[in-house]
Design a protein around this nucleic acid. Structure first.
Length: 564
RNA sequence: GGGAUCGUAGCUCAGUUUGGUUAGAGCGCCGGCCUGUCACGUCGGAGGUCGCGGGUUCGAGCCCCGUCGGUCCCGCCA
C-alpha cells in the first residue's frame, strides 16, 4: 500500500501494484470489524483485502486518477507483511539523492516511474528479439569465461581454480565468437548480451553493459545499415518516440570538417568552417603560431550573440580548456561596427573576411580556434554543444539519426609508439587501401560505421576480415609479431583456414539507446542494479574482500599496490 | 591519473561569505481530534557523531590539511 488518509471514522488507503493505484475505503459504519485494523496500516505494508468495487458518488470522483471513479469498500483485511518506514517516500514525486536510490535500489525501483523504465527496457528487448528473429537471425549464447585479448579495454579477470595461476577474462564483447559463428555456418547471429570493460565510468558508461550484438554472412555495408535502421525505427516505435524521416551518411572526414566530431549532434547548426587561408594573411600571432606549427584556424558563427558580456566570452576559454585548447578568439558585428579583443591585432579587413567566411552578419559573433586540426575540432565541437545548451537550440521532440562511416583504420598511439586499431583489429580495410597497410597505415580507411543519435554513438560495426592473409597484414601493421598474433588469436586465424564466408555486423549499446529513447539523463536510470561512477554497488557493497581460504584455493596471494 | 562540485534531522535543503549563546525549515515519523479524503485537514511531540580523522583558535558546521563517499567532465573506454 501507498498512503493512508485517516478521517476519524473513515479511512482511505491507496493500494498500489505494478499496474496502478486504487482507493480502498474502510468505514466504521459499514465494516466495523476491519475498521480498527485499518488504523494500523502504514505505507509499504503488503496487504490482501476483500471487498466490493463500487462507483464513487459523482462529487467524490477524482478526475486525476485513472481509477478515480471507483473504490473498494473493504470487508476483510489481512496484513501479509508489515514494513518499516522507508528511508524515502516510495513516490514518483519524492526528491531523493542518487546515493540513496542506489543504496535502497529495491525501493527506488518500486517507484512507479522507475518501475516503468525497467518494463520499457523489457519491451525494447522483446521487440529486438522479435524483429531480428523475423529477419532470420538466431540468438546464440557465447561464453563469459573466455580469453584475455590485447587491444581495447582493460579486461576483468577471473582466476581459474582448476589451473592455478591462469585466468579467464570476461568478454569486452562477443566479437571473436560471433565471427566464429559465421565460420560455423550460422549465417545470421544475434544476442542481447552483457559486455565487461574495466574502465572509468561516466553518465553513459558502466563496467558491465548490454549490447544488441549482430553478425551476418555475405553482407554489404548497405545491407547492414539498412537492417540497423529498420531495427532502430522499430525501437523508436516501441518507445513511442517520433523517428527522423531520413538517416543521412557522413564520412568521418566530413563529420570532422562540418562538426569537429565523429558523433555530431546535427539537431542544430553552428557548423564549422576552416579559415586558415584568411588567418594566414593577418599578422595575428595566435593564428600565425598555430599555422606555422602545421595546425589550422577554424571557426563557427553563433547567431545573435554579439552582445555577450566580457565574462561570457572569457568563460568560453574554460569550455575549450579540457580539450587542450589554448583559447577562443571572438569577433562580433555590433551596430554596424566590428568588435572583439583581438580586432586590433587582426585588422578590420581580415576580420571582415573571417566573419564572412563563417557566415556572421549583424549581431552575430564568430568564434575561432587556432590549433592542431584535431584539437581545433575538439574545441569547436565543445563550443557547439555549449551554445546548443546555453541557447536551447534543440527543438523539443526532435531526434536526428545519422551514420558516420569510413573511419581511419588506425590511429597513432604516442605512448606505445605504434599504430592501434581505431575500431578493432578484425575490421576490413577498404580494398583500395590494402596496398597502404605497409607503406602508410595512417591513410587506410576502414569499412566501419557508427550510428549516431542526437550526438550519441548508439551503435557501431564493420565488415570483418575473413582472409587470413589480410588479417596477418593488419596484425603486422599493429606491431604484433607472428608469434604473439598466433598466441592471442591463433584460434581465429586457424578457423579462417577452413573456409570463411565474408561477414560483418554491428553492435548497439542497448542501455544507452534505451536511455535516449526514454529521455533519461543517465544510463543508471535504465539499469536495474547499476554501480556508482567509482564502480561500487552501494546496495551489496561490492567489490569486497574475500576469505583467505578462497584465495588459497586459487593460489592467489595479495600484495601491496605499487605506488605510481 | 587529472579537474570541478556536493556531503548538516529518516528525506530534501538553509546556515559556511565575515568563526561566537540553545544549529533551523519543509516533508516524513509518533500521539490526539476529525464521515468523503485523494499532497486530506488540524493540535501537540520526538528526532542532529554537521561524512570521517587531524590541525589552527579562548572558541570550528563555518578556516587549513588529509581521507571516504555521491555526481559531472578530461584522459581512458578497439
Amino acid at each position: 500500500m501507498r498512503r493512508r488518509r485517516d478521517l476519524g471514522s473513515l479511512v482511505f488507503v491507496d493500494l498500489r501494484d505494478r499496474e496502478g493505484i486504487v482507493q480502498l475505503v474502510f468505514s466504521e459504519d459499514r465494516h466495523p470489524e476491519v475498521f480498527a485494523a485499518a488504523k494500523d496500516l502504514r505505507p509499504e505494508f503488503v496487504i490482501a483485502v476483500k471487498g466490493v468495487v463500487e462507483n464513487r458518488m459523482p462529487k467524490d470522483v477524482n478526475p486525476h486518477m485513472a481509477t478515480g471513479a471507483v473504490e473498494v469498500e473493504v470487508s476483510e483485511l489481512e496484513v501479509l507483511a508489515q514494513a518499516e518506514t522507508p528511508p524515502f517516500a516510495v513516490e514518483d514525486e519524492s526528491l531523493v539523492s542518487e546515493e540513496m536510490r542506489l543504496q535502497y535500489r529495491y525501493l527506488d525501483l518500486r517507484r512507479p516511474f522507475q518501475n516503468a523504465r525497467i518494463v520499457a527496457r523489457h519491451r525494447l528487448a522483446q521487440r529486438t528479439r522479435n524483429f531480428l528473429s523475423g529477419e532470420g537471425f538466431i540468438e546464440i549464447e557465447t561464453p563469459f569465461l573466455t580469453k584475455s585479448t590485447p587491444e581495447g579495454a582493460r579486461d576483468f579477470l577471473v582466476p581459474s581454480r582448476l589451473r592455478p595461476g591462469t585466468f579467464y577474462a570476461l568478454p569486452q564483447s562477443p566479437q571473436l565468437f560471433k565471427q566464429l559463428c559465421m565460420v560455423a555456418g550460422f549465417d545470421r547471429y544475434f544476442q542481447i548480451v552483457k559486455c565487461f570493460r574495466d574502465e572509468d565510468l561516466r553518465a553513459d558508461r558502466q563496467l558491465e553493459f548490454t549490447q544488441i550484438d549482430i553478425e551476418l554472412s555475405f553482407p554489404t555495408e548497405d545491407l547492414i545499415m539498412s537492417l540497423a535502421e529498420r531495427l532502430t525505427l522499430e525501437l523508436f516505435a516501441e518507445a513511442g518516440v517520433t523517428a527522423p524521416e531520413e538517416v543521412p551518411r557522413l564520412t568521418f572526414a566530413q563529420a570532422m570538417d562540418r562538426y569537429g566530431c565523429d558523433k555530431p549532434d546535427t539537431r542544430f547548426g553552428l557548423e564549422l568552417k576552416t579559415v586558415s587561408g584568411i588567418a594566414a594573411a593577418t599578422g595575428f600571432g595566435v593564428f600565425r603560431g598555430a599555422l606555422e606549427a602545421g595546425g589550422c584556424v577554424r571557426g563557427l558563427c553563433v547567431p545573435g550573440q554579439a552582445g555577450m558580456s566580457r565574462k561570457q566570452i572569457e568563460d568560453l576559454n574554460a569550455v575549450v580548456k579540457p580539450f587542450g585548447g589554448k583559447g577562443v578568439v571572438s569577433l562580433m558585428r555590433k551596430g554596424g561596427a566590428l568588435a572583439g579583443a583581438a580586432l586590433k591585432h587582426i585588422g578590420e579587413g581580415p576580420a571582415e573576411a573571417l566573419l564572412d567566411a563563417v557566415g556572421a552578419g549583424e549581431g552575430d559573433v564568430g568564434l575561432f580556434v587556432a590549433d592542431a586540426y584535431d584539437t581545433a575540432c575538439a574545441c569547436l565541437s565543445a563550443l557547439r554543444l555549449h551554445f546548443s545548451k546555453a541557447l536551447n537550440l534543440v527543438e523539443a521532440g526532435r531526434h536526428d539519426l545519422l551514420w558516420v562511416h569510413r573511419f581511419p583504420m588506425f590511429e597513432w598511439s604516442p605512448e606505445e609508439g605504434r599504430w592501434s586499431a581505431k575500431h578493432h583489429p578484425f575490421t576490413m580495410p577498404a580494398q583500395e587501401h590494402w596496398d597502404l597497410l605497409e607503406s602508410d597505415p595512417g591513410k587506410v580507411e576502414a569499412q566501419a560505421y557508427d550510428l549516431v543519435l542526437d550526438g550519441n554513438e548508439i551503435g557501431g560495426g564493420s565488415l570483418r576480415i575473413h582472409r587470413a592473409d589480410i588479417q596477418k597484414r593488419v596484425f603486422r601493421a599493429l606491431g604484433f609479431s607472428e608469434a604473439s598474433a598466433q598466441e592471442k588469436f591463433g584460434f581465429l586465424l586457424d578457423a579462417f583456414r577452413y573456409g570463411t564466408p565474408p561477414h560483418g555486423g554491428i553492435a548497439f549499446g542497448f542501455d544507452r539507446l534505451t536511455m535516449l529513447l526514454l529521455g533519461c539523463d543517465s544510463i543508471r536510470d535504465v539499469i536495474p542494479f547499476p554501480k556508482t561512477t567509482s564502480g561500487l554497488c552501494l546496495m551489496t557493497g561490492s567489490p569486497g574482500t574475500v576469505d583467505e581460504k578462497q584465495l588459497e584455493e586459487l593460489a592467489i596471494s595479495l600484495r601491496e599496490k605499487r605506488p605510481e
